[in-house]
Structure formats: C-alpha cells, structure tokens
C-alpha cells in the first residue's frame, strides 16, 4: 500500500481513478443543471432531491476527497516532472506528438480550480449552508423546499458572470479532452484499435460537457 502512493505507476493510478470519479460526477452535475432550462419546478425538485437524499450526503465527503487527492497528486507529479528535465529545450515542437491540452493539464486544472472556488462561493455555500441569508421557500405538491432557481437565473443575467461561466466551461472541456482516454489508458485500456475510439469518445464527452454548461448561462443572459 505504501508503494501505491509513492511509486510512479501508483501515483498515476490515483490520478486516473480520482479523475474518472470526477468525470462521472460532472455528468451528473450537468444533467441536474440542464433542468434549469426546463423550468423552476423541475430544477428546484431536483435540488431538493439531492439535498435530502442520504446517498448524496454519503457521497459528498467522497467527492471532496476525490478533488483533494486529484489536486494533491497532480501537484506532486507536476513538481516531479519538472525535476525530470532540469534544463529545458530551446526549441520545442510537440504539435504532432501530443495535444496542447495534454501538455497543459496542470495549468488547465489550476484554472478550473479557481473557477470551482468562485462557483462554490456563488452557489454551493449559499444553497448548502445558507451563506448570505436563507433562500426563499416554495411549495410543490405540499412539500416545502428552497427556491434555488432565482439565485441561478439572477446571477446569469449579469453579463460578465455569464461570460466567466462560459470560460469556465471551455477550460473544463479542454481539461476533459485529455482526461477520459488518458485515465483509461492508465488502467491498461490502450491498443492501436482502442486508442482512436477512446480519444474520439473523450473529445465528444468534452464537447458535450463544455456545450452543456455553456448553454445555461447563455440561455439566461438572452432570455
């Protein structure tokens, strides 16, 4: 077990497994958010379901741990990687051997992290802990619940917030473009037949997530 956390292969495995977990989470997150486009009732009910479901309570610390492991090991590995080439090349042309995103995963991850921090302040802390005052209440079918819809729709009517969220979605998409297939490769899923398929699935997944999260602020901005 000690070797798992210290060996290069073990550290890659931690990046891969925590990454795959976060990749799954982001899809669930997007599906829930897309209910914003359906209307206040659908969205509020979904938020209420998430807030009251015991499984979600159980998963919350697991999700936080997933983020923490992913970030800590990314930092450890990036520092190691920098030490592995003490003198940099004067001229580097890796355009044909790797994608731009793959070479800048730590930078992209860092930018996504800044976005997540803003995102937590904007929504999560307000919805979860009532920071900045309790949310208004609404009653559907006799069940009283938080009305989270105006919080989201209100924020995205501010044009520069909408722009920041679209930029966040694009950064996330670039990060994901390299993530899925690379994480699966670490688990051994790589051969000449599989690689192009997985890479295309990765790109498709990144586009779905990027577009999906972009549509929401744009919708509220123009509606």
């Amino acid at each position: 077990m000690k070797k798992l956390f210290s060996s290069s292969v073990g550290q890659k495995l931690i990046m891969s497994l925590s990454g795959l977990f976060l990749i799954t989470f982001i899809l669930v997150h997007l599906l829930l958010n897309l209910l914003l486009l359906v209307g206040p009732e659908a969205y509020n009910k979904a938020v209420h379901f998430m807030a009251t479901n015991p499984l979600m309570h159980l998963m919350e610390p697991v999700l936080a741990a997933g983020f923490i492991f992913h970030i800590i090991y990314a930092t450890i590995l990036t520092l190691q990687n920098q030490k592995a080439r003490p003198e940099a090349y004067a001229v580097v042309d890796q355009s044909e051997s790797s994608s731009w995103a793959s070479r800048n995963m730590y930078v992209l991850g860092g930018l996504v992290f800044i976005f997540i921090a803003l995102h937590l302040v904007n929504f999560f802390f307000k919805m979860k802990f009532g920071v900045g005052g309790d949310l208004p209440k609404v009653v559907y079918e006799g069940i009283k619940m938080d009305d989270a819809y105006p919080l989201v729709s209100g924020l995205f009517k501010v044009w520069w917030y909408a722009v920041i969220y679209v930029i966040g979605a694009v950064l996330l998409a670039l990060h994901l473009r390299h993530s899925l297939w690379s994480a699966l490769q670490t688990l051994g899923m790589n051969n000449s037949n599989l690689r192009p398929i997985l890479e295309n699935i990765s790109i498709l997944y990144a586009v779905i997530i990027g577009l999906g999260f972009s549509i929401i602020p744009i919708y509220f901005l123009i509606s």
């Binding site: 060996s7 290069s8 292969v9 550290q11 890659k12 990036t78 030490k83 592995a84 995963m105």
Partner: peptide, 15 residues
C-alpha cells in the same frame, strides 16, 4: 524495472 526507472528518470508518464 519500474523502480529503477523511477530512480533514473524521476517520473512516470503523467497527464
């Protein structure tokens, strides 16, 4: 093999 590689090159293929 892998342990030796880690010693020689400090890193594995990552990202």
């Amino acid at each position: 093999n892998i342990a030796r590689m880690n010693r020689e090159f400090l890193c594995a293929n990552f990202s």
